[in-house]
Design a protein around this nucleic acid. Structure first.
Lengths: 347, 347
DNA sequence: CTGAAAGCGCTTACAG
DNA sequence: CTGAAAGCGCTTACAG
C-alpha cells in the first residue's frame, strides 16, 4: 500500500542523466556547474511532474544540516513561553527554518536529555532557557561551535549568547512606583531560586527598598513546578504579615496563586493591598481591578533570539563572540497599584 | 574543533568485532542472535566507555522509524492547546517517544505544509487539529497506513481516528443552565466557521433554545486569527441587542474579547448579563465575578490521543478501523451565570 | 555464534 | 559540461 516515494535515482534513470547532475540542479548549482539550460529545464520538468522532494533525512546524514532549530522552554503552557515560541516559529518559517519546541520543566536532567536529543538529531541551532546544572551540556554545544542562545535567564559561568530583560531595573521601577503611591510595607514574593532573573528581580527590589528607607519583606517559596498552586503558602504569609500594603509577585504563576490568596482573604485590591506582577497576562487588563504588570517585550525577544541563531549559522567565524542583550521591560500601570487618589497629599 | 562523535565502526575496530554484532547487541538482540554473554559484556563496556550513541538520523534512514510524534495544533499560544501539548509530551516521553509541535494558525496551506514536512521527516505518528481543506493531505497519510488521529474537531468526509468532546451536549446543558437561572434572551457568540466543533456547539444552543420556546440570538464573527481582538464586534453587537440577558461564548478567546466588551459597556455580570465560556481559563475562577465555563477534559483527551497513536504504531493491522471518541465536557458553574438568588421564586 | 556486504537517499571531490 | 564512485552511519538478509 505504502507508495514508495520518488527518489533521485528515479529521475536520473528516466532522463538518463547522472544523479550528480540532478543534485546540482535541484540545489540551484546549475549555473555554477555550467549545466546547459535545456538540461536544467528538462530535469526540472520531470521533478515537478513526479513531485520529487529530496529526503531531508538522507540530506542531513550527508551534510550534517537539518534546517531545524530547537527551542527548549521551561514550560510551554506558561503563556510567556507559548507566545515566545509562536513568534520564533513564525520568523523561523519565514526564513526557511522549522522550529521544534519542547518543555524542560526546569529540570536539569530533562534539559540535558533534550539538548542531547537535539544534538543527535543534528538540529542547526539551540534556543534554551537553561536550568541550573546544565553548564556541561551547553558547553558541549559551545565547544562544537554550534549556534546557541540562552534566554529568560543565563548561566553566569558560561560565555554564551543570551537575550534577557532588565530584571533589575524593571523591578526597581515597579517598587518605586509602589512607593510613589504611598506604600510603606512592600512585600516581594518569589521562588527560592538561584536563577539569574530571580536574583536580579530580588536585587532590584532590595535596592528600591533601601533607597526609600523602607524595610525588606521577602517571602521565598520552594519551587514545586510551574503548574503547581502556591495559593496556600501565599495565603498564610499574607495572613501573618497583616501590615503589608503592597505585594510584588516575581513570576506570572505566583501572581495568579497570589491573586487567589488575596481574594480568599477578602482583601481589597488596591485599597488593602496593592499588586504588581512580573509578566503580563491576557486577562490582567480585564480583572476587576485591572492588574499592574511588568510586560516583557515578547516580539523583540523573539526577534533577537532568532537573529542571533541565524547569524551564527551563516557566519560560524563570528560565533565565538558572545552577544549579550538586555532589553527593557515595560511597567504597565493599571488599577491594582494605584492608591494615590485615596491618599491625602501633604500640602 | 568539532569533535567527531563515536560511530559503530569505532567500536567494531577497537574490539575486532563486526558492526553487525555490535548492532545486534546495541539493539537488544544479543539473546535472539545467540551472541555469547562475554562478547556482549565486552561490547557494552566499550560502548559505555566511549559514550557511543547510535545516530538517530542514520537509523531512521535505514529503518524508516524516527520515534518522534508530530503534533499540529491550531495555536500553541492558546492555553487549551498548550496544555494538551504539555500533557501529550509528558506521556510520549514516558513511552520513549519525542513530541515535536507546531502551530497551523488554522490555515489550510500551513497545515498542508506541516503535514508534508512531518512526513518527509518520517515522523512515526500524527496528531492534528485539522483545518478545513486538508482532507487531501490527511488522506495521503491514511493511504500510507500512517498513524493519524484528529482532535478538537474532525473532517466529516474522512474516515480517521478522532478524539473530541461532546460539543453538542455540553453546550445544550450550559444553555439550559441559563434558562434555569431565569434568562430569557440568551445570545450565542461564535465564529463564522464550518468546523465541526463550532457547528455542534451551535446545534446544542439551538436545540436548548427551541426546547424552551425561546428565541435564537446568534452572532457569528468572521475568523481573523486567534490572537485577534474581537472586542469591537462583540461590543457593538451587545450595544444593539440591549435585551440580551445572557451570553454564551463559543471559544476561549471570544470569551476574553467578550469580557472586555462587557466591562467597557459597564454592564454588570451576572445581573445585567450572564456569561458562560467554552473552555476554561486559569484566571476565570479568580475573576470578579468568577466565570462559568465548559471545561474540556484535557488530561483524558491527551491520554486518548497518545494511546491511539501508540496502538496504531504497534499494531498496524488494526490501523484501518477508525476509533472515534467523544468525551464529556464539564460545566463548571461559577458566579457569572448565577442569577437565581436575585429572582423572586414563585411560591 | 559471527561477519561481509548491500542498501537507505542523498552530496561532492575528483576526473575527464 | 557531465558522470562514476565514495561515503554519511546505520540495519539486516544471507551465508557459513
Amino acid at each position: 500500500m505504502k507508495k514508495k516515494s520518488v527518489v533521485i535515482g528515479d529521475i536520473a534513470k528516466q532522463l538518463n542523466v547522472s544523479k550528480t547532475t540532478i543534485s546540482f540542479i535541484i540545489n540551484g548549482k546549475a549555473k555554477e556547474k555550467r549545466i546547459s539550460d535545456e538540461l536544467e529545464d528538462k530535469v526540472m520538468r520531470v521533478v515537478d511532474e513526479l513531485g520529487y522532494v529530496p529526503s531531508p533525512l538522507a540530506k542531513s546524514l550527508r551534510t550534517g544540516k537539518t534546517n531545524i532549530i530547537g527551542l527548549i522552554v521551561e514550560d510551554i503552557s506558561n503563556p510567556f513561553f507559548a507566545l515566545i515560541a509562536r513568534k520564533i516559529e513564525e520568523r523561523a518559517n519565514n526564513n526557511g527554518y522549522k522550529l521544534f519546541y519542547c518543555s524542560s520543566e526546569n529540570d536539569t536532567k530533562k534539559t540535558s536529555e533534550l539538548i542531547r536529543l537535539f544534538r543527535q538529531r543534528q538540529l542547526d541551532g539551540y534556543i534554551i532557557t537553561p536550568a541550573a546544572g546544565t553548564e556541561k551540556d551547553i558547553n558541549i554545544l559551545l565547544n562544537e561551535n554550534l549556534p546557541v542562545v540562552l534566554f529568560d535567564r543565563y548561566l553566569p559561568d558560561i560565555e554564551a549568547n543570551y537575550v534577557i530583560v532588565d530584571n533589575f531595573g524593571s523591578t526597581y521601577n515597579a517598587i518605586n512606583h509602589f512607593v510613589e503611591q504611598g506604600c510603606k510595607s512592600i512585600a516581594f514574593i518569589s521562588l527560592d531560586s538561584e536563577q539569574t532573573q530571580m536574583k536580579e528581580r530580588l536585587i532590584g527590589y532590595k535596592k528600591a527598598i533601601s533607597d526609600n528607607n523602607l524595610k525588606h519583606i521577602i517571602k521565598k517559596i520552594a519551587f514545586r513546578g510551574n503548574t503547581t498552586n502556591y495559593t496556600e503558602e501565599i495565603r498564610s504569609f499574607l495572613k501573618t504579615e497583616t501590615h503589608v500594603d503592597a505585594v510584588f509577585f516575581a513570576t506570572n504563576y505566583l501572581a495568579i496563586s497570589g491573586l487567589e490568596a488575596i481574594v480568599s482573604l477578602q482583601k481589597k485590591i488596591p485599597d488593602d493591598i496593592g499588586v504588581i506582577a512580573f509578566d503580563d497576562h491576557d486577562l490582567f487588563r480585564l480583572f476587576a481591578p485591572s492588574i499592574t504588570a511588568i510586560a516583557q517585550p515578547i516580539e523583540q525577544i523573539s526577534a533577537h533570539l532568532l537573529d542571533i541563531i541565524l547569524n551564527s549559522i551563516n557566519d560560524s567565524a563570528n560565533i565565538q563572540i558572545a552577544r549579550k542583550m538586555v532589553l527593557p521591560a515595560n511597567l504597565i500601570i493599571r488599577r491594582s497599584s494605584l492608591k494615590k487618589e485615596r491618599i491625602i497629599k501633604p500640602e
